[in-house]
């Protein structure tokens, strides 16, 4: 929703003060561009599922994150979904991944599943790390071979080269 409201205020300004300066239009374009970029990102939930599948590699998970651009975006909070995911998540990979994206609020060790029901602040942190941190540009790197899988416009490219299959 924040995207729309931001645009709305811009339009409002536009109506009150007709833009005489090119700079103002450029600013509008920039805002639009930035908002557009905010929408597409790789999140840690996916990082937690992926490994390097180059033939013969043994130590393939977790992939290291080299972040060039990290963005935070609010996502609807859905406790049921989080509870379902919690059991499937490799905790250490999530903690390390969140750190390399600049978020270090998660506890080092995964709490008991009971915390999911009793501790809302934990659930919020888990939600933030899993879904709201977005890697927009950067790479995810194989811990063994150093092969970089680029993340471009938020989309990890996991396709292997011919000599890696």
């Amino acid at each position: 929703m924040s995207i729309i409201s931001h645009h709305d205020t811009c339009v409002f300004h536009l109506r009150r003060q007709p833009p005489r300066h090119f700079a103002f239009l450029a600013h509008l374009l920039l805002v639009a561009q930035r908002e557009r970029e905010r929408r597409k990102k790789m999140r840690l939930i996916v990082h937690n599922m992926l490994s390097c599948n180059i033939k013969g590699v043994v130590n393939k998970f977790p992939l290291l994150i080299e972040a060039e651009k990290v963005i935070e975006k609010e996502v609807d909070f859905n406790p049921d979904f989080l509870r379902h995911m919690f059991a499937k998540i490799e905790w250490k990979a999530l903690v390390d991944g969140a750190r390399s994206m600049g978020y270090s609020e998660l506890p080092d060790y995964a709490p008991d599943t009971a915390a999911l029901d009793s501790d809302e602040s934990f659930l919020r942190k888990f939600h933030h790390a899993l879904l709201e941190l977005h890697l927009d540009e950067g790479s995810i790197v194989c811990p063994e071979t150093g092969r970089k899988f680029s993340v471009n416009k938020g989309i990890p490219n996991m396709l292997l080269h011919e000599d890696e299959v």
Binding site: K40, V46, N48, L50, S51, C52, K60, P62, E90, M158
Partner: peptide, 16 residues
């Protein structure tokens, strides 16, 4: 939550 580019013939899912 995610869009990926990958090959379904050689999926990159972590073991486990």
């Amino acid at each position: 939550v995610a869009l990926l580019r990958m090959d379904n013939n050689l999926p990159p899912w972590r073991s486990g």
